[in-house]
């Protein structure tokens, strides 16, 4: 069979050129810094896509697993705790710990009807924030854990100036995630996920162990989200406060999956570009521009672009489901699991 570059490959190949663009263009766009956020959320949304896109289970608490990853990373690396692991080993540990958290939440709840799961995960998202806030002996409460180390390569640690290194590290991790998920998608496991999404009773009657297969999807998603959390903590050099991982983040990830194309990796990448582009590029730049021109500095709520976030997310979901239910880049049937 002749190899044709698929849309995923093209998107990722284009992404390698962005830092170059930053240097060529005369204006100070700082594209690569913004695109970093796209990569991070793409990783998170790829995780959500496993559970929501493939297995058809609505998970509204993906941000909680991101928080668990971030705090795990923080506790394992920060100098105020005795563990003090390096970047790579701590990031590696976020994955099994995220999976374990997914298992603990999933074990009692995955036997339920799908819509109950949505509310349980939503509640979990809120509770994890509460717990992190309340356990301030362990988590430093609302201060967040900082400072956190950056990655080290060949013995020296990166500094904030290593803009492009960060960019390519995130891109590389995104590529690894894409490959891993594609391998799972095109295997017996992916097929079982698809079959459960389509007809749970029929799958069960064919001998698919539904609870176990759902659990693997749930734990995989949690593990990927936790890794994204660890990465984001490392980029910011702080876990931030617990409310940084609130419902908004989960919904942003859901928007990426729904708008981009549910169950499609290329769709998630495009969705991440569109939604994160809107959220942390257009809105942020608009706010900066308005501040520079003295519009809406205070007072009127309508004049602060940030206040439109919920509306944009909400409309994106409602309109996407209504007008383009399979998303911008729908999954291709003949490319379904091999």
């Amino acid at each position: 069979m002749r190899w044709r570059p698929g849309p995923i490959f093209i998107i990722l190949a284009l992404a390698t050129c962005i830092p170059l663009l930053d240097q060529i263009l005369p204006v100070e766009l700082q594209l690569s810094e913004a695109v970093r956020g796209v990569f991070l959320y793409a990783i998170l949304a790829l995780g959500l896509n496993v559970v929501t896109g493939y297995a058809g289970l609505l998970n509204l608490g993906i941000a909680a697993f991101m928080a668990i990853g971030a705090y795990t990373f923080g506790i394992l690396t920060c100098e105020i705790y005795p563990f003090q692991l390096g970047f790579w080993s701590a990031l590696g540990l976020t994955i099994p710990i995220g999976a374990l958290a997914g298992f603990i939440l999933g074990a009692p709840t995955l036997g339920l009807r799908g819509d109950y799961l949505a509310i349980v995960t939503l509640g979990f998202g809120e509770i994890v924030q509460d717990v992190l806030k309340n356990l301030d002996v362990v988590t430093k409460g609302t201060q967040g854990i900082n400072p956190l180390p950056a990655p080290t390569f060949g013995g020296h640690e990166w500094t904030a100036d290593d803009e492009y290194k960060w960019y390519y590290l995130l891109l590389a991790l995104l590529v690894v995630t894409v490959i891993a998920i594609r391998n799972l998608e095109r295997s017996r496991l992916g097929r079982a996920w698809f079959s459960i999404r389509e007809d749970e009773i029929a799958s069960r009657s064919m001998g698919i162990r539904v609870e176990r297969i759902k659990m693997i999807a749930f734990a995989t998603a949690a593990a990927i989200a936790a890794m994204a959390g660890g990465l984001s903590a490392s980029i910011l050099s702080s876990t931030g406060e617990p409310s940084n991982y609130d419902f908004q983040i989960s919904i942003l990830a859901l928007c990426i999956v729904i708008v981009g194309g549910i169950g499609s990796i290329a769709g998630v990448l495009v969705g991440a570009l569109v939604m994160v582009g809107l959220n942390s590029i257009v809105l942020v730049k608009a706010t900066a521009w308005m501040a520079a021109h003295g519009i809406g500095s205070q007072g009127n709520v309508l004049l602060s672009p940030n206040n439109w976030k919920f509306l944009i997310f909400g409309l994106a979901l409602v309109l996407a489901v209504r007008l383009k239910p399979s998303g911008l880049v729908p999954p291709r049937i003949e490319r379904a699991p091999q």
């Binding site: 097929r191 698809f194 079959s195 389509e198 007809d199 003949e334 699991p337």
Partner: peptide
């Protein structure tokens, strides 16, 4: 009750 979105082989 087939899995309509999957191919026959699948």
């Amino acid at each position: 009750r087939l899995f309509n979105e999957l191919s026959l082989v699948q």
